[in-house]
Amino acid sequence: MPNRVYISFLRLPLLVRILFIALLVFLTFGISIHFLEPDTFPSIFDGIWWAIITASTVGYGDYVPHSFLGRLTALILILLGVGIVSSYFGTLAAAAVTKQDAFSEGRIPFKGTGHIIIIGWNERSRELIHKLTSVSIPQMIVLIDETLEANPVKSRFVHFIQGKGHVDETILKSDIQHAEKVLITADRGNDELQADMNSILTLLTIKGLCTQVKCIVEILTAEQVVNALRAGADEVIQSNKLTSVFMVNSLHSNGDGLLSNVVHQLQEVKLSSFMAEEKDIGKCFGEVCQRLLNQGFLLIGIKRGEDTVLNPVHSFTVEENDQLLIFK
């Protein structure tokens, strides 16, 4: 039985073991001094108080032993207690520093709900994280990347995890079961096809662990869009296609940077979709557009099933189950 207790004690964290030893020392010497000098230390509590104050080298002087045995006990306590107390606080400081280093280096799992997971560190994810953390009520973000050695963002709303996105252990550290959305960015440092393969492999890992979480994937090659959808992507962003559209419009413009200004303004607003209300069903697009304008919203199109119609004619009729695409 004593051996089992000793083994259980050894399994405790070092900080807890030192704390238990310190408490045992304080109790032993506090009780001993009470029985050695009951007139000076009327109660056991007074003895324990004296033991703690003496061992911590504070020494208020409100209780002082007078007998030879009492002073010998105090001498032993000072020699023994200072080492224990110093070890305790030294271990506590070392544990705090180790914990902080592990947190900064991405070795601490995240625990929370409703967070956004961003996989891959690049200029796009940097800008996105800056936008998400600059709002009045920021949402918690978990950044996963294997190339970083420490958290690149100094924000309490960004939790960094170091590791490969297609490894189960790394994804589980992000508390994927309670995440709201996952954004997988493409690694432009690799060949485009290889980057897409890595993104799809990461997507398969995530969907294998948590099928219900919504995943947005950045794909560089048009051929891999279908594979990303087959792997379970809820939305695919073809960044190269978006860039080419931007370039074409710039070439056809008058060189006044109009498209750049529009894109810059779009960073400050949000595109959302809402199910058409019952009062809008059967009405024409122009009427619904005017009603939303009066509320401060800009209606730009209708999503009907798999089809999306941008800026339809004003006579376009809104039907049941239509989704309104709105800038707000």
Rank of each mutant, 00 (worst) to 15 (best):
I48K: 03
D39G: 09
Y63M: 09
I21C: 07
L27S: 12
T40F: 04
T57N: 13
I52D: 00
A55F: 01
I52W: 07
F41V: 02
F35L: 13
V58C: 08
G47Q: 04
T28K: 08
A51W: 02
P38G: 02
L27C: 13
I33R: 02
D62E: 10
I33M: 01
P65E: 02
P42R: 05
T54K: 06
I44M: 12
I52A: 06
S32K: 10
G30V: 00
H34C: 04
V58T: 09
V64C: 05
F29Y: 11
A51Q: 03
L23M: 14
I31F: 09
S56L: 10
F26H: 09
F20S: 15
I53C: 13
L36A: 08
T57V: 11
H66M: 11
A55P: 03
S43R: 10
P38Q: 08
P42I: 05
W49F: 14
W49Y: 15
F35N: 11
F45E: 15
V25D: 04
A51Y: 01
L23R: 08
S32V: 06
E37N: 06
V58L: 14
T57P: 09
G59F: 12
P65I: 01
F45A: 15
F20T: 14
W50I: 01
D46C: 13
S43L: 10
S56M: 08
I31R: 10
F45Y: 14
A22N: 11
A55S: 06
F29P: 04
P65K: 05
G47M: 02
H34K: 13
I44R: 11
